[in-house]
């Protein structure tokens, strides 16, 4: 079912923040199509709106204007409870700072998305164990985050993001807090998950060496998103529309 449509499409998405009398337009008409099995990177300077975009894609934030279709559902006008449920079922988050809950073990952290889905405890533990095995952390499942290295924490976080079989894995600078070697290990894991399990992944990164390993590379600049040519994996993929920002400039003026 999920494979029949685009996993996600953003059309003309704007996001502005009002700070006192000033309105800061962070996203000015972003268009984005994500297909099932895509492995994409978004690069851009600090403060360019990468996290803002990820929050919108991940249903933590709402666009000021524009439409947002996730797996065939228009999610623009949904209420908070519904967004939480969709987030739980469709999105997996990986953060730069890992964001594991410090009081819980690795296993309990990985169980959390299933807990909020209402999966029973025994079943949740079974699935969490399995996914921890897939990221190579089976023998650390009863460790607390403080007993894990950075790379290990990020593996647990990836397991937590994947345990609910999300449609889309969102990783906001997943290697940003890791040394080069560990960063490459984590990156290799993400590449492997994409290649072997077909997990759709969107990686936000500062690091061009990370970006280069992705099949689709996008840049965010001045509130607009553009896709870099080349790197296409071949003829199995239709060409994607780029962000046609030249025409849609007026979108930024909307509140």
């Amino acid at each position: 079912m999920k494979a029949t449509q685009n996993t996600l499409s953003l059309t003309d998405v704007c996001r502005s923040y009002r700070i006192g009398p000033v309105t800061a337009e962070v996203l000015r008409g972003v268009n984005l199509e994500i297909g099932s099995g895509d492995l994409m990177s978004i690069m851009g300077p600090s403060g360019s709106g990468k996290t803002t975009l990820m929050n919108i894609v991940g249903l933590l934030d709402r666009p000021s204007s524009g439409t947002h279709v996730l797996d065939g559902h228009d999610v623009s006008g949904l209420e908070d409870d519904m967004l939480s449920t969709l987030r739980n079922e469709y999105i997996g988050f990986v953060f730069q700072a890992f964001h594991l809950l410090p009081r819980l073990t690795a296993l309990e952290n990985v169980c959390l998305p299933l807990v909020y889905r209402g999966v029973g405890r025994a079943e949740a533990i079974r699935r969490a164990q399995a996914i921890l095995g897939r990221v190579g952390m089976a023998d650390r499942s009863h460790h607390q985050p403080s007993q894990l290295s950075g790379g290990q924490k990020q593996r647990v976080a990836i397991a937590r993001a994947l345990v609910g079989n999300p449609v889309l894995l969102l990783a906001d600078e997943p290697t940003g807090a890791l040394d080069a070697e560990t960063a490459q290990e984590v990156m290799a894991l993400l590449l492997q998950l994409n290649a072997e399990q077909g997990v759709t992944i969107l990686i936000i990164t500062h690091d061009s060496s990370v970006a280069r390993q992705c099949t689709r590379q996008l840049r965010i600049d001045d509130g607009k998103l553009l896709e870099l040519p080349g790197q296409d994996r071949g003829a199995d993929r239709p060409p994607r529309p780029l962000a046609d920002d030249g025409i849609r400039d007026q979108g930024a003026a909307a509140p």
């Binding site: 409870d81 939480s84 987030r87 988050f93 809950l101 909020y116 609910g164």
Partner: peptide, 16 residues
């Protein structure tokens, strides 16, 4: 606050 935010990101509803 961070814990709450993480839980929300993982799909906890307000009532949860």
């Amino acid at each position: 606050r961070r814990e709450i935010a993480i839980r929300r990101a993982l799909g906890a509803r307000r009532r949860d």
